[in-house]
Design a protein around this nucleic acid. Structure first.
Lengths: 127, 127
DNA sequence: CTAAAACCTGACACCGGTGTCAGGGGCAAG
DNA sequence: CTTGCCCCTGACACCGGTGTCAGGTTTTAG
């Protein structure tokens, strides 16, 4: 398929797909005139990339993990396991950060609501 | 206390503290010569800022939430509640992203390990 | 008094994924 | 052939918290 269709189906911009190719996250065949053509499986591949981006992995790291996912072999799995463990640790720490911050926000919201009721205004808002 | 001490005790750089002041997240009194002086409570305040930064809140958003934390009143709590709810939602979504990605990494690690045992090499590496 | 350490302001750089513009092909439908 | 849409490359901008350098002042220790 052409790049516009892949972008639409994977939910990313055309710009991003070209960038992924440049970073080695995605490959395409080219028509004689130079236009990119993609296979069906690339939709899933792009979603995979997005999923890891959403978790804060860099394009370099994702590039390193791609073969483990799409062309696993003894050769690549060794070095990759360390990277996997490292990223897992980072993600877990990040989740902890988020949970802590969310708790803090919740406490602040409670406090804010308490202040609202501590000082009731005659006619706050009818509706 | 002076800025260097606050930086050390809060675990951030001096540069960051000046930036926080510029963004309205932190205030300082000045000595006649212009040097910043901070109160004890600012240590906690800086940690609070860091906690929210770690959860992806921007300095602008944090600035908006500061009064809710350190000077709560009917006046500010109203508009802030919406912001709090919004950020909470964002954080929760982010946690979901991280959990999904972590699961994916875990599956990849399993796959990698499986490949290792599927194709055992005679003498991988002795030491 | 002097030297070192700490502080000041201001400015520029970085990262990295994405938006966007410019200027130029390719290709199907009419 | 023309029109219109999609594609190509290359380049610049952005965000935002932080590092870092320059050039200068203040404080502190000896």
């Amino acid at each position: 398929m052409r790049i516009g269709e892949l972008a639409a189906r994977a939910g990313v911009s055309v710009r991003s797909l070209r960038y992924y190719e440049q970073r080695g996250l995605l490959t395409s065949t080219r028509t004689p005139s130079g236009q990119r053509r993609y296979a069906e499986g690339d939709v899933e591949r792009v979603r995979f990339v997005q999923e890891l981006y959403a978790a804060g992995l860099s394009s370099g790291t994702i590039a390193e993990l791609m073969p483990c996912r799409y062309a696993p072999s003894r050769h690549n799995s060794d070095a990759t396991l360390e990277r996997l463990a490292h990223e897992r640790e980072r993600i877990t720490a990040q989740i902890d950060d988020l949970l802590r911050a969310r708790d803090t926000l919740d406490r602040m919201a409670l406090l804010a609501r308490a202040h609202r009721e501590t000082l009731p205004v005659p006619e706050p808002v009818a509706g």
